[in-house]
Simulated scan of single mutants.
Amino acid sequence: MSLHQPTSPAGKEAVAFDREARALFAAAYPDQPQHLTHRLAGHPLLSLAALADLAERMPADSVEYNRGDLPLGIRPEDTPANGLTLGETIRTIESNGSWAVLKHVERDPAYAALLHDALEDLRPIVEASTGPMLHREAFIFLSSPGSVTPFHIDPEHNILLQIMGEKVMNVFPTHDEELVPPEQSEAFSQGGHRNLRWDDSFLPRVTPIRLTPGDAVLMPVKAPHFVQNGDGVSISFSITWRSRRSVAESELHSLNHKLRARGLPRVKVGARPERQWIGRGLFRVVERLGL
């Protein structure tokens, strides 16, 4: 091994994140967004041709694609289709004004290995903070020039790695109940849609993070954000995992959804929900009784 090659905490050569990136990640995880760098730009599995081939062999429920000229706030049922097949969308994405996501690409063995190797660089840091990396998953986003991903939240710890093109991740504070009201967090925990209501008064709270190939951003669980693509085609590789903390938060919001429906007082979801043993125990009782 070259003396100049970055190594992982276990002493192996780092696949995606060098020593500096890991140090920045450790300082921010799990609660703060953080700009990082990575080493996967130009990887053959993440080329446009390879992704078009991958998309065409994926099941229909693992892909989503639509027009990319969308407002920041849009109801899911109002999202327009682009009139193309998935393969056509990816192969002509430079000119068709679309946005596409390939979900759970870890179901393909080659992409599963890439996900594993990238997360392995960070696993010791995550385990020391929030316990084991649970439910590891990967998503690939492809966007036409100028496309927009509307204001939304995601349920996982997420690092978005920019592979091709440019985009701006516009990140907002977590735990801001004006941005994400408790009722929406509760519905989201029950499978509700990720899109959020947008209001221009939210803009002063944004932190824009510009991404070019080789850049990445750590996104905390349920950090509200929207994405603006640059002037070229964008490919981004999203590597995600759950933790004891994210699972506990989802449990408590799910419990509150049921309590609210019955007009009962809700449980306050704190900064460390994994330590809220009484609320989590009540969630398990409610689930066991099927209430």
Rank of each mutant, 00 (worst) to 15 (best):
A28F: 01
P71F: 05
V15S: 15
R194Y: 03
S201P: 09
E137T: 06
A112T: 05
E56K: 08
A16L: 01
R123A: 12
R136I: 06
R75V: 00
L264T: 03
A52F: 13
E178D: 09
R244D: 10
I163A: 03
P6R: 06
N229C: 15
I140P: 04
L119H: 12
G290Y: 11
P273G: 04
A112P: 02
A100D: 03
S185H: 12
L218V: 12
F141W: 02
S246Q: 06
S201W: 09
V247Y: 01
R22T: 05
R242Q: 15
H38L: 07
H135N: 13
I235S: 08
P182I: 02
N82E: 06
P145M: 00
M58C: 03
H4C: 09
T130M: 14
I159P: 10
V126N: 09
H135K: 11
L259C: 07
A271C: 06
L203S: 14
Q184V: 14
A49V: 10
G230E: 04
L72R: 14
G214Y: 04
Q32Y: 14
R197D: 08
E64R: 15
G87N: 05
A14P: 01
E120T: 15
R260A: 15
S143F: 01
P224H: 00
L48V: 02
G263A: 01
K12F: 09
S143Q: 14
E183W: 10
E287M: 14
G232T: 15
R266S: 11
E137Y: 08
I74M: 00
W241E: 01
F151W: 04
R272L: 03
A21P: 04
K222R: 12
D18R: 07
I93M: 00
E183Y: 13
P30R: 00
S250V: 12
V286K: 01
E88H: 04
K103Y: 11
F151S: 00
S185E: 08
A248E: 02
G87S: 01
A187W: 08
R91Y: 08
G165D: 01
V285A: 11
G270R: 15
P155Q: 14
E13A: 12
A118V: 00
P109I: 05
L54S: 05
L48R: 12
V180W: 01
G131S: 14
L122Y: 05
E127I: 04
R107Q: 14
D117Y: 09
I235G: 04
P182H: 03
Q276R: 00
A118S: 14
I125M: 11
R205L: 10
S250R: 12
F226Q: 05
R67N: 02
H38T: 00
G279M: 04
L161Q: 09
L3C: 06
D69E: 02
S8A: 13
P204L: 10
L119V: 10
V126W: 12
R123I: 11
S238P: 04
E183V: 07
V101C: 07
R194C: 07
L134Q: 11
S246L: 09
S143T: 10
A138Q: 10
L255E: 03
L84D: 06
P155T: 03
L40F: 01
D31Y: 15
